[in-house]
């Protein structure tokens, strides 16, 4: 969320030759080591472990898991549950990212500028982010469930029950909508930050040249927001690809397992079905896909930005 400029220069050469002292090397090591060690032990080792476990048939507790080679990965390929979950996850990630960013950018433009009212709007748009996804899911299922607040009202007025959570298509849309409801406030705040960095003089100049608001937005503001857009899209994608908590509390994966995401399936397989090896293979797959998508989006956007700047 920091990339409102070009990627920050991470390494700056101190101007002028610094006086090298032998103690500096040690000091550097002391300052870097704790974070690095902990990072390796609790993040890199687990990733390696997941790789290893994905090659076994372990149930999670018996003494000697058997090495099964790529069998889990072969199973992955024609596992209908995973295929469905992958589809749901991609749909959530792509549609959710679109929703988060369109609303985020749109409302950022609408509430840009310092005023009491704008401050209030920002608070209201942002507040669901304070709530955990779990709470958000329980809350919306109490509102949209078959016996929930909305359907009680609808049936009282003689209408048919609206299957927000009981029809697969509706439930998927409901889930994406709730994700967007809960999250777009963050994108608003991030885009607002980006908007502050748009050179005011450029906007003024365009106005004086007689450009309409839309033209100014399209030709001045949006290009200047380029890096913000990249960061927002990557963040949204990475977050949505691991959607889990909301599934648990909003739909519990139902109806008919049609809203299970990959993250949900991983934990279900690993623990409920005691197929930890298989679950690990799914984890590895999810990690690869997340990394690849983030990479591709960053690359594409960067190319796009370069094109804009030329």
């Amino acid at each position: 969320m920091t990339l409102t400029r070009e990627a920050p220069p991470v390494v700056t050469k101190p101007p002028g030759p610094p006086k090298r002292r032998p103690r500096d090397g040690w000091a550097n090591a002391i300052m870097v080591a704790p974070a690095t060690v902990l990072y390796v032990v609790m993040l890199i080792v687990p990733v390696a472990l997941a790789l290893y476990l994905s090659l076994t048939d372990w149930d999670g507790f018996s003494a000697n898991p058997a090495f099964v080679g790529a069998a889990n990965y072969v199973d992955l390929l024609d596992d209908p549950e995973l295929r469905r979950a992958a589809l749901v996850t991609l749909l959530v990630a792509v549609a959710g990212t679109a929703g988060l960013n369109l609303l985020g950018l749109g409302f950022a433009v609408l509430v840009n500028g310092a005023s009491r009212a704008n401050t209030f709007f920002r608070i209201v748009l942002f507040y669901p982010h304070v709530l955990s996804a779990l709470v958000v899911g329980f809350l919306w299922s109490a509102i949209l469930g078959t016996n929930g607040a909305v359907n009680n009202l609808v049936t009282r007025w003689g209408g048919e029950v609206l299957p927000f959570l009981s029809d697969p298509t509706w439930a998927t849309i409901t889930m994406i909508a709730v994700l967007v409801w809960a999250g777009f406030g963050v994108n608003v705040v991030l885009y607002l930050a980006g908007l502050q960095a748009v050179p005011h003089s450029l906007v003024e100049a365009a106005r004086i040249d007689g450009a309409t608001r839309w033209q100014v937005f399209r030709n001045v503001t949006l290009p200047a927001l380029g890096p913000s857009v990249t960061v927002n899209i990557v963040l949204s994608l990475v977050t949505l690809l691991k959607t889990y908590d909301l599934v648990v509390s909003l739909t519990a994966g139902g109806p008919a397992g049609q809203t299970q995401t990959v993250a949900y399936l991983i934990l279900w397989n690993s623990f409920h079905d005691a197929r930890l090896g298989f679950g690990s293979a799914q984890s590895v797959l999810l990690m690869l896909v997340t990394g690849a998508l983030a990479f591709v989006v960053t690359k594409l956007r960067r190319r796009g930005e370069l094109a804009v700047h030329q």
Partner: peptide, 10 residues
């Protein structure tokens, strides 16, 4: 036909 929206207790 909308029974899937009902929880056990419902």
């Amino acid at each position: 036909k909308n029974a899937l929206g009902l929880k056990y207790a419902d």
